[in-house]
Nucleic acid binder design. Structure first.
Length: 294
DNA sequence: TTCCGACAGTGGGGTCGCAAT
DNA sequence: ATTGCGACCCCACTATCGGAA
């Protein structure tokens, strides 16, 4: 029985793969967790191999499996029909575990190494394992569909899910990022007025973004990636022409590092989610344009 | 010689705990 | 009492460097 196994990671793609050799699962938005069961003594490891058994004691306690097993999966909180990262954080911050659900999607060890078995066989073994031990909440088996990736993705997007993970049915488990696991995500796009920036040797380190809400200009967070050094300096040159002594936000926020600007430029941004605080999560910069209306 | 992938670094939104202000 | 920092979680992306092609 090995110790912590570095998890396999997925490569980002914009389109779901076609063909019957692919199986597709829901993309869960939570914490990647590896559960080790060693004759009833269970341990829970984070993505980087830290022992978080205590923080996820309900998950660890729920699995009563004879013999040794290593299960890969994601711990989540389901909120309004989808897995919610911010609700998961809120749950943990409150020191509670009632709403935690563990979606198990791979079996790496079962009284022996399963990593070289095909994906589809590992999943079957996982289903058998969970099924025969009568596992119920908070542990669930992550179902999949075979083929029809594009349909599955469209369905996921309609339901406002994060996206899908597509896996080669015949592939082994490897502790790396490769093309046997693909993540296809629904991205949100937006155009937000730039209300300030943080300086940087190459130009800007980050942009402060706002959003017009009725008569108010409200803060929606920062974006700090997506540009090269050359683009960074171009952005800086543009923004330097509209520097303002004071923040134009309706409810100004105190940010010591900020240089405020008139909201005359719009940033095209892609993001994954809006946090409970109303800020953009995992945002990236795609372009800058002038606002002709103001 | 050129190209590509892994990795480090930087940027984001969160949480926590601790130390300095 | 507030603020800043470093660990952790999640993430997107750029720059670099060494090895493969």
């Amino acid at each position: 029985m090995p110790g912590f196994i570095k998890p396999q990671l997925a490569t980002l793609k914009s389109k779901a793969p076609r063909g019957e050799q692919w199986l597709h699962e829901i993309k869960y938005d939570g914490y990647r967790i590896q559960v080790h069961t060693i004759g009833g003594k269970n341990k829970v490891y984070t993505r980087n191999g830290l022992d978080w058994t205590k923080r996820f004691s309900t998950i660890a306690g729920a699995l009563d499996i004879p013999g040794d097993a290593i299960i890969d999966g994601e711990v989540v909180v389901v909120h309004e029909g989808r897995t919610s990262f911010s609700e998961l954080q809120a749950e943990l911050a409150a020191g509670r575990q009632d709403r935690l659900v563990y979606y198990a999607f791979d079996l790496l060890w079962r009284d022996g190494d399963l990593r070289n078995f095909p994906q589809i066989e590992r999943k079957q073994a996982l289903l058998d394992l969970l099924g025969e031990n009568g596992i119920e909440l908070p542990v669930l088996y992550s179902e999949h569909l075979v083929g029809n990736g594009q349909q599955m993705f469209e369905h996921a997007a309609k339901l406002n899910w994060e996206g899908i993970i597509s896996k080669r049915a015949d592939a082994p488990y490897r502790s790396e990022r490769n093309e046997n696991w693909l993540k296809i995500k629904a991205v949100h796009k937006g155009k937000f007025p730039v209300v300030g920036f943080i300086k940087d040797p190459s130009g800007v380190a980050a942009l402060y973004l706002g959003k017009q809400q009725g008569k108010d200009l409200v803060y929606v967070g920062k974006v700090g990636t997506g540009w090269s050094r050359t683009v960074s300096s171009k952005i800086r040159k543009q923004l330097d022409t509209v520097v303002s002594p004071k923040s134009k936000l309706t409810r100004p926020i105190r940010k010591p590092k900020a240089t405020w600007v008139e909201p005359k430029f719009f940033a095209d941004v892609e993001y994954r989610d809006i946090t409970s605080e109303g800020l953009l999560r995992a945002s990236s910069f795609k372009g800058l344009s002038r606002n002709h209306k103001l």
